Amino acid sequence: MAKSGGEEADSARRRGRPRSIETSNSILESAYALMAATGLATTTIDAVARHSNVSKMTIYKWWPSREALLIDAFLHHAAQMLPLPPVSSGTPAARARRHAAAYAEALQGEFGKVQLAVISECISKTGSAELFYARYLQFRRDALVAMIAAGQKDGSILAEGAPEDLYDAIYGGLFYRYVFGIAPVTPAYARSLVDLVLRPKG
């Protein structure tokens, strides 16, 4: 499986002793738990180190910045909560419906609040959301764009636009509606939006 931008960056950065999966997961889970429970302002490296019982030196060795750690903690949680749909789980359109519906449902809970907070943190610290895109969104976006393209190729998706534009219309629309509170972002709405944008055959 292809690595996300963050994973590739970490691989390139590490040259010595490989990180412990158990310790890494403990750090990521602690960071996400703190973000969800107390907010980003109090989710410092010190707080994560205390919560996970890991030294600050270890955290700084594996993550180049606090922002990178927060994004990877969100990525770690999202990978479990919103796994990318496997090829064996139905047509591209059916998989898109399920994933969009799961995303819409996740937005209603702590996941949505943490995602928005992490993006805001990136923008306030670096002036853009590029770090969030590189470490989290790019890999997932590329995988779902490829899924849409496969549906166009096999004829199960009738929409003729560029797969990237179709993806952005679905997930950008859901996020826009969520951020501004225009109307509830429900799983049913997400499924109907997928059908409106992709025009699945049959």
Rank of each mutant, 00 (worst) to 15 (best):
K3L: 15
K3N: 11
S4T: 15
E8P: 00
E8N: 14
A9N: 09
A12E: 12
A12I: 09
R13P: 00
G16Y: 03
R17P: 04
S20G: 10
E22K: 12
E22V: 15
E22Y: 11
S26K: 09
S26D: 14
E29Y: 09
E29M: 09
A31Y: 00
Y32C: 03
L34G: 02
L34R: 04
M35T: 05
A37S: 15
G39H: 04
V48Q: 01
A49G: 04
H51V: 05
N53W: 04
V54Q: 08
K56R: 13
M57R: 11
M57I: 13
I59E: 00
Y60W: 13
Y60D: 13
W62P: 00
P64Y: 08
S65C: 11
R66N: 07
L69E: 01
D72G: 01
H77V: 11
H77N: 08
A78P: 08
A79D: 15
M81G: 04
L82W: 04
P83R: 06
P85A: 12
P86H: 07
P86N: 07
P86V: 06
V87S: 09
S88A: 12
S89W: 03
G90M: 08
P92H: 02
P92N: 08
A93V: 06
A93N: 02
R97F: 05
R98N: 11
H99D: 07
A101D: 08
A101K: 05
Y103C: 06
Y103G: 03
A106L: 04
A106C: 11
G109P: 08
E110S: 12
F111I: 05
G112D: 10
K113S: 12
K113R: 14
K113W: 05
V114Y: 00
Q115L: 10
L116N: 13
A117N: 05
I119S: 01
I119L: 10
C122I: 07
S124V: 06
S124Y: 02
T126F: 09
T126E: 11
G127M: 13
A129V: 07
L131R: 05
Y133G: 09
A134V: 10
L137W: 08
Q138E: 14
F139P: 01
F139G: 07
R140D: 13
R141F: 09
D142R: 13
A143D: 10
L144W: 01
M147N: 11
A149V: 06
A150F: 00
A150I: 00
G151F: 00
Q152N: 12
D154E: 13
G155V: 02
S156F: 01
L158P: 03
G161K: 02
A162K: 14
A162V: 08
D165I: 05
Y167N: 03
Y171T: 01
G172H: 11
G172I: 07
G173H: 12
L174W: 01
G181A: 08
G181T: 12
G181N: 14
A183N: 10
A183P: 09
A183T: 14
V185Q: 02
T186G: 08
P187F: 03
A190N: 04
R191I: 14
R191W: 04
L196T: 15
L196K: 13
L198D: 00
L198M: 05
R199K: 15
P200S: 10
